[in-house]
Nucleic acid binder design. Structure first.
Length: 479
RNA sequence: CGAGGUGUAGCGCAGUUUGGUAGCGCGUUUGGUUCGGGACCAAAAGGUCGCAGGUUCAAAUCCUGUCACCUCGACCA
């Protein structure tokens, strides 16, 4: 029987044979996205957008709980405004799309389609911030941004993508730093408790930091092919943007001071991460908290006496208990429905047929490990809720175990090279840009982050150049 | 942006070398039998061969250009 199952599965490539093709197959065949007529832009279909809505819902609650409010700023940014922060411009200029015409008129000043909104938000904050009493400013916006990327992949890197960007202003560097760290913490908690993705948080190198930031913190996750995905970043912008955009306030001591700003963002890229961390050869495996459908009820032999009615009754009972549930009453065979559920990553499948009705039970099948159990129809919603929690925990533990098994500690460059070929490497690093560039050229690996809370010292010399080592750095090939 | 590959029915593909009536499997529709891991029988519908030019009596097939996707690089929060 197991063999027969294998036969059905794949119009999907196998992860082990061609991970990229597997990813493409999964997102297309589960109806998450489709390619559009515009190069590099994707259509997010209802099943994919459903995941994004749940992500938004969960994150937004966390932003509100930490005192932030949502706002919306314009899509278009005048060129002169964008150009005010030199390092920022240099970083983003190569990937900015421009609006140059309005109808038939050539615009007197071209308008950038926002690649990120520090500039336009900064210019508004300069008006709104006058006094220390106005601080802190804590806002977030959910929107789209555009970056003219040369090579694109759905969710992971698209020309237009959806995200949230938080932008705050504080009276002191300490407060700004506290905010930067706090929001990265919110991201980490979200990634682990909602997406069931273990992440490593830490600080970016000078090369990898956000253009215009004092420093950038990041959370990095490992995909099943061992490559890293940056899942979210939080930037302490110091006074760089405040000075460029004139965000000043009169402090308690009567002195006019520049504010300290932060920004932090996560995007639809996280959905790509979700797929690549949890998916298997049968398709998606969605963690319960972001699964648009948590439970699929599959009636067996539904034409038979009372089966459909009972299935329908269960469906409403589960729905009323607050579960996201669907009833598959199509004419497809049971086997077809099972495989479809699995491909779409639905966490729990409920099978109900004549035998179950006799016994007053149903069959529960979990997506993460395919374990089948019989459960009484009594209190089914509670049983399933417990099961969903188990599934979440199991997914997280699996992902963590897989990640930890692919982290290598290297004190010599041979070990380093092997380690980044399918995983993360922890190594001591000199902190120099030329060394970072050389490592990338030789191995394809980039610096991911200097992890927080790690004071390990593997060696007192840099793993690559042998100069005195400054910090423990995590290296990996990245998406 | 560079190198390589692929575009033919909703999906997966054959046909292209050697130009000569557009094919197969799955899916879809209709009717019937089925129903606990992708059921079966019968009938039917569905394609200006990615797009635009060109060569030719004749182009899916040859030539030129172009677009999209995939892989690997380069680039990139």
């Amino acid at each position: 029987m197991a063999k027969k199952q294998e036969e059905f599965v794949t119009h999907i490539a196998r992860r082990s044979e061609d991970f990229s093709q597997w990813y493409t197959d999964v997102i297309l065949k589960t109806d998450m996205v489709d390619y559009s007529d515009v190069k590099g832009c994707m259509v997010i279909k209802p099943y994919g957008y459903g995941v994004w809505e749940l992500i938004q819902h969960e994150m937004d609650a966390r932003f509100k709980a930490t005192g932030h409010k949502n706002a919306y700023f314009p899509l278009l940014i005048p060129e002169s405004l964008l150009m005010k922060e030199a390092e920022h411009v240099e970083g983003f200029a190569p990937e900015v799309a421009w609006v140059t015409m309005g109808g038939k008129e050539v615009l007197p000043e071209r308008l950038a389609i926002r690649p990120t909104s520090e500039t336009i938000i900064g210019s508004m904050y300069s008006k709104w911030v006058q006094s220390y009493r106005d601080l802190p400013v804590l806002m977030n916006q959910w929107c789209n941004v555009m970056r003219w990327e040369k090579s694109t992949r759905p969710f992971l890197r698209t020309s237009e993508f959806l995200w949230q960007e938080g932008h705050t202003v504080h009276a002191t560097l300490e407060e700004a730093e506290e905010e930067t760290v706090r929001m990265l913490g919110v991201y980490k908690e979200f990634a682990e408790n909602v997406l069931a993705i273990p992440v490593i948080t830490g600080q970016k190198s000078a090369k990898e930091k956000f253009a215009g930031a004092e420093h950038t913190y990041t959370m990095e996750a490992m995909m099943q092919d061992g490559k890293a995905l940056q899942m979210g970043t939080s930037h302490n912008l110091g006074q760089n943007f405040a000075k460029s955009y004139d965000i000043t306030f009169l402090d308690k001591d009567g002195a006019l001071k520049y504010g300290y700003t932060t920004s932090w963002g996560t995007s639809t890229r996280m959905i790509g991460g979700l797929i690549m961390v949890h998916g298997d050869d049968r398709g998606l495996v969605l963690p319960p908290k972001v699964a648009p459908v948590q439970v699929e009820v599959v009636p067996i032999a539904q034409h038979k006496e009372g089966v459909f009615e009972k299935a329908n009754e269960l469906f409403f009972a589960l729905k009323n208990a607050g579960l996201r549930v669907e009833l598959d009453d199509s004419e497809k065979s049971a086997g077809w429905k099972f495989n479809e559920c699995e491909m779409k990553g639905i966490p729990v499948r409920v099978e109900i047929g004549p035998k179950d009705i006799e016994k007053g039970t149903v069959v529960l099948v979990r997506r993460d490990n395919f374990e089948k159990t019989f459960a009484p129809m009594e209190n089914l919603a509670d049983t399933i809720k417990t099961l969903l929690e188990d599934i979440h925990n199991n997914l997280f533990e699996q992902a963590k175990a897989r990640r930890d098994a692919h982290i290598t500690q290297a004190t010599d460059f041979e070990t380093f090279k092997q380690g980044v070929n399918g995983g993360f490497v922890e190594a001591m690093w000199c902190g120099e840009r030329d060394c970072e560039d050389a490592i990338k050229a030789e191995t394809g690996a980039t610096t991911r982050c200097m992890p927080f809370g790690e004071h390990k010292c593997l060696s007192d010399v840099c793993v690559h150049c042998g100069r005195p080592a400054k910090r423990l750095m995590i290296f990996a090939k990245a998406y």
